[in-house]
Write a protein that binds this DNA or RNA. Structure first.
Lengths: 143, 143
DNA sequence: ATTCGTGCAAAGGGTTTGCACTATT
DNA sequence: AATAGTGCAAACCCTTTGCACGAAT
């Protein structure tokens, strides 16, 4: 229930924020503000600024995670405290969540070697999904 | 010698492009366009557009690698075909190169599980460097 | 001489912000 | 009633682009 989320983040309860949160909760992957607006617009329309402000407020409270992807857009997802990464199709943008994070064992080692206090990381993996692979304009296959 | 790099990339040889390349070659980590401009300006001044265009041309030829970091800026580095990642201080932005890439073993596995053809990945690790740690305004240390 | 690189200023895309207004507490 | 959220338009930052000029082949 979103009520608690907003309350415990010291944010006022509004229909829009609740809707934004429920969109994120229903989403299988991180979403851009435009994607959120698109989905949310089925129930009510709201300004992009509103979504940005809501998400930034929530990110400040660590309720959502904000990540800038290589496409130049910021993606948001609920911070469920399960650490995840995405595999993104470079052609259709379809995303698959990974449940492995290969980095935790590395980070401790790294902290020792560098003296840095590791605070986090950002990992995106890119590829071509099977569907796009099928419909690939044959660019460099030698038939 | 840069001559060969530009020639083999089918790009005209200019003083500015050579300078840009030598700045990148001397750099221990990936640099932003502004950082490159700053360093290069000691030898000659050039417009940011020129740097952007030179780097994009080189990135298209895979001579340099172009990566968008979480600070919203694009970083460029020579593509020496050694796969590297950076550890970045969130406070002073100092970067350390890692020579481990923990992802290659994972990717093969991933390809099987998802059917994706993996084409690459992006990994940044964030932390606080020892110097910044020393001078940290004590925010949440309980003394 | 042709082709490509460069500077400048303007435009672009995504995100943020100031202000007046509206809703929540 | 006080405080915080929202819409709108303008501003912002980094990057890209059009055009006229200049340099490399």
């Amino acid at each position: 229930m979103n009520n608690n989320i907003l309350k415990s983040a010291d944010l006022k309860q509004t229909k829009k924020r609740n809707l934004i949160l429920s969109v994120l909760e229903a989403a299988p992957t991180a979403l851009t503000v435009e994607e959120i607006a698109e989905i949310a617009s089925k129930e009510m329309k709201m300004n992009l600024s509103t979504i940005y402000r809501a998400l930034n407020a929530l990110a400040d409270k660590n309720v959502v995670i904000k990540t800038l992807y290589q496409d130049g857009k910021t993606y948001f997802e609920i911070n469920n405290h399960k650490h995840r990464h995405s595999l993104i199709c470079s052609m259709c943008n379809k995303k698959v969540n990974l449940d492995v994070c290969p980095l935790e064992p590395i980070e401790e080692n790294l902290a020792q070697k560098t003296g840095y206090t590791i605070t986090g990381h950002n990992l995106e993996i890119y590829g071509i999904c099977p569907e796009c692979m099928k419909h690939m304009p044959s660019e460099d296959n030698d038939n």
